[in-house]
C-alpha cells in the first residue's frame, strides 16, 4: 500500500499535466467555436509550462536567488535552490504562447470581419458554397 501511495505522490503532478494537455487537444479537435479552440490551444501550452516547472522542483529548496550577505562566508549548496534552467526556458515559452495568442486573436478578428461568424462549420459551409458558385460560373 505504501509503495502505491509513494508511486502516486511521486507522479501525480505529471499526470495532472497530461490531463491538461488532453483537455487542450480535446478543445482543439471537438469544439466548433474558434475562440474556444484558441482557449484550448492556450491550455495545452500552459500545461507544458507546468510540466517543465515540475521537472525543476526540488524538495526543501528555495527560490533560485542567492543572497549577497553570505556569498563569501558560506559555500553555495546546489540542493538549497530549485533548478533555475526550466524557469528560464518557460519564461521564453510563456512569451511564445502570448505571441501566438495575439496572432490567433487577430486572425479570428479578420475571419469575423470576412464571414460574420466564428463557428467553424458555418464558415466551412460558406466556403463550400462559394466554391460551388465559382465552379458553376466556370462551367458557363
Amino acid at each position: 500500500m505504501d509503495n502505491y501511495l509513494f508511486f502516486i505522490v511521486s507522479k501525480f503532478n505529471y499526470w495532472g499535466v497530461m490531463i491538461l494537455i488532453m483537455i487542450g487537444i480535446y478543445a482543439i479537435i471537438s469544439k466548433q467555436n474558434l475562440i474556444k479552440k484558441i482557449i484550448g490551444m492556450n491550455i495545452f501550452q500552459t500545461a507544458i509550462i507546468l510540466f517543465y516547472i515540475s521537472i525543476g522542483s526540488k524538495k526543501n529548496a528555495s527560490i533560485p536567488i542567492l543572497h549577497h550577505l553570505n556569498e563569501h562566508t558560506q559555500k553555495i549548496n546546489p540542493d538549497d535552490f530549485v533548478n533555475p534552467l526550466p524557469h528560464v526556458l518557460m519564461l521564453t515559452a510563456i512569451v511564445v504562447s502570448v505571441a501566438t495568442l495575439g496572432v490567433a486573436l487577430s486572425l479570428a478578428i479578420k475571419i469575423y470581419q470576412q464571414f460574420g461568424t466564428l463557428e467553424e462549420n458555418i464558415i466551412n459551409n460558406k466556403i463550400a458554397a462559394d466554391n460551388n458558385r465559382q465552379s458553376v460560373i466556370d462551367r458557363l
Binding site: F6, V9, S10, K11, F12, N13, Y14, W15, M18, S54, I55, G56, S57, K58, K59, A61, P64, I76, P78, D79, F81, N83, P84, L85, P86
Partner: peptide
Amino acid sequence: STLDFPEWGDPLSPANTHLSVYYIE
C-alpha cells in the same frame, strides 16, 4: 510514458544534477 520519470522533487534526478548545478554554483 511518465512511469519511468524520476520522482517529483527528487534533488538527485538527472535534470537537477547535470547542468543546473553549474549555474547555481
